[in-house]
Amino acid sequence: MSRIALRFQIGARTILTVHRTLTRLALSLDAALAGAVPSLPPQEGEGYLITSLPAALIDRIDRSGRVALVRQRYTRFYTDLTIGHDAWLASLSGSARATLRRKMRKAEAAGMTIRAYRTAADFAAFHPLARAVSATTYQERLLDAGLPDDPAAVAHLAACAAADGLRAWLMRIDDAPVAYLCCTAQGSALRYDHVGHDPAYGDLSPGTVLHAAALRDLFGDRFARFDFTEGEGQHKRQFATGGIACVDLLLLRPTLSNRALALALATFDGMIARAKRAAVDPRIAALARKVRR
């Protein structure tokens, strides 16, 4: 049980944050693929937040009179690491393969080098370099999702490395750290936990290039899947070989304040969803371009 921020967000921008003390159940990729209905522990606080719940299981969750709200729907993407690197490349479209080769050549011409890290000693060398990159990223500035630097989180990552449960990569351009990827094991999968690149090098597509290099390494590793975790994105869709439809489900005690909060969140989320659909309309997009001028 912990104090969890329930955000009213537009893209990466948080408009308002309301906190509730909730029990969070974060399903692993293995659990989501297994399709078993999760058991809710005895309730403490204001309720539960269940993340990566397979969408097919929503109606099978014991709500017991609680206020239920789906915060988001998404595909939890993953890459099957048992098929081999050549088969994975073949699963990409011809244009995607050509684009990836072009980006690789461009980064190599700029002086790119990539190093992999996996042991506890490796992680001690990796962390300060990756932290320097993380400080420049939008993940840290806007989403509070940079590479951790608090002692407890760093100690946890170091322990994962000591137990052969961490894989990390760092890209340099002419010896300057420009992108990092730090992943930890969960069951048979390796999780896409912490990622970022220096925006000053964005024209080199460092995130895409680094991830492609990491996958090349992982096809010979011990993991069955690479887990892109919650949320979607073009990069995830392109590199994934499969996915499972999931939701994040909020269950709250049926108090007056919680009912009001759920209504406000549902109204706001619905408004944002309608705005996104409208933005796809060519007429709306053309009007938006005129306004920006």
Score class of each variant (00 low, 15 high):
Ala90Asp: 14
Ala36Ser: 11
His85Pro: 03
Ala189Lys: 00
Ala240Met: 11
Trp169Lys: 13
Asn258Phe: 09
Leu249Asp: 06
Met1Val: 15
Leu100Ser: 14
Tyr180Met: 06
Thr137Ser: 00
Ala189Glu: 08
Leu252Cys: 14
Ala121Asn: 07
Ser39Trp: 14
Tyr138Val: 05
Pro128Ala: 06
Ser93Pro: 11
His85Asp: 09
Lys236Ile: 02
Thr208His: 15
Leu256Met: 06
Pro199Gln: 03
Ala179Met: 08
Arg97Pro: 01
Lys106Met: 10
Val178Cys: 12
Leu210His: 11
Phe223Pro: 02
Leu33Thr: 00
Ala152Met: 13
Tyr201Pro: 00
His194Gln: 06
Phe226Trp: 04
Phe8Pro: 01
Ala56Gln: 14
Gln9Trp: 00
Leu29Glu: 06
Pro41Val: 08
Thr14Ser: 06
Thr82Val: 01
Lys103Ser: 13
Asp30Arg: 05
Phe228Leu: 01
Arg71Gln: 11
Leu252Ser: 05
Leu27Trp: 03
Ser64Ile: 00
Gly187Cys: 06
Phe226Gly: 00
Val67Pro: 06
Leu215Asp: 07
Ala96Leu: 10
Phe219His: 05
Ala130Phe: 10
Val133Gln: 12
Ala56Trp: 08
Ala245Thr: 08
Ala213Gln: 13
Gly202Ile: 12
Arg105Gln: 09
Ser95Phe: 11
Gly196Trp: 04
Pro282Ile: 08
Leu250Phe: 01
His194Asn: 09
Gly35Ala: 07
Thr255Ala: 02
Thr255Trp: 04
Phe228Gly: 02
Pro254Gly: 08
Glu46His: 09
Asp122Thr: 08
Arg222Gly: 03
Met1Phe: 04
Gly207Trp: 02
Leu40Asp: 12
Leu6Asp: 00
Arg259Thr: 01
Asp175Tyr: 06
Arg118Gln: 12
Arg60Ser: 13
Ala275Met: 15
Ala155His: 09
Gln139Trp: 14
Arg293His: 15
His235Trp: 13
Gly196Thr: 13
Pro254Arg: 12
Ala116Gln: 15
Ile15Ser: 05
Tyr117His: 05
Leu33Tyr: 06
Arg141Glu: 09
Ala116Lys: 15
Gly94Val: 08
Ala161Cys: 12
Ile284Lys: 06
Gly196Asn: 11
Leu204Ala: 10
Thr255Leu: 04
Val178His: 01
Pro151Val: 14
Leu29Tyr: 02
Arg105Leu: 11
Leu89Ile: 15
Thr184His: 12
